[in-house]
Computed example of a mutant assay.
Amino acid sequence: MGATRTFLEELLAGNQRHVESLPEDYFSEVQTGQHPDTVAICCSDSRVPQEHMWGVDHPGVVFTPSNIGNQVWDDDDGERIVDGGVLYPIHHTDTDVAAVVGHTGCGAVTAAYRAATGGELPGPQGVDKWVEMLVPVVEKAIESDLIDRETDETTVINQLVEYNVDHQAEFLRESADVPDDVDVYGFVYDFQGVYGNEFGRAYLVNVNGETDSGAIAELLPDEFATATQSILY
Rank of each mutant, 00 (worst) to 15 (best):
H91Y: 05
E20N: 14
E174F: 11
N206T: 13
S28P: 03
G118L: 10
G107M: 11
D96A: 06
D45I: 07
L87H: 02
V161M: 11
F187H: 13
L219A: 04
I231Q: 04
D222K: 11
L121T: 02
S21A: 13
E174D: 13
L8T: 04
V30G: 01
P179V: 11
G60Q: 15
C43H: 07
S213W: 03
Q16F: 08
F63C: 00
Y203D: 03
T226V: 02
F171D: 01
R5D: 00
V127W: 05
P136E: 05
D190V: 06
D94P: 01
L121N: 03
Y26E: 11
V127H: 02
D76V: 14
A40Y: 00
S44V: 05
D94R: 09
L22M: 09
T64L: 06
G2A: 12
D83A: 15
E210T: 05
V161L: 12
C106R: 05
V184T: 00
G60R: 14
R80W: 12
S44K: 12
L22Q: 13
R5A: 10
Q34M: 10
I147W: 01
V194T: 12
D37A: 08
D152Y: 12
P23H: 08
D75H: 10
Q50A: 05
V19K: 06
E218Y: 00
E79C: 11
L219M: 15
A116N: 11
P65K: 06
Q31A: 15
A215C: 05
H18I: 14
D74T: 15
V138P: 02
A99C: 06
H35Q: 15
A3R: 10
F199C: 08
A202H: 09
A99S: 06
Q125L: 15
I142H: 00
A108E: 04
D94A: 10
K140D: 06
R149T: 14
V56F: 10
E29V: 04
D180T: 13
R47K: 12
Q192D: 13
E132C: 10
N15M: 14
E218K: 14
E139I: 14
Y163D: 00
V61D: 04
R47Q: 14
V194F: 13
Y185K: 04
G107C: 07
C42Q: 04
L121G: 02
L11Y: 03
V178M: 12
D166W: 14
M133P: 01
D25G: 10
Y189M: 02
G2C: 09
H18A: 10
G2D: 11
R17D: 08
D45R: 15
E51N: 12
W73D: 11
L160V: 05
A225N: 10
H91T: 09
R114V: 01
A176I: 08
L220W: 01
V161C: 09
T117Y: 10
T211N: 05
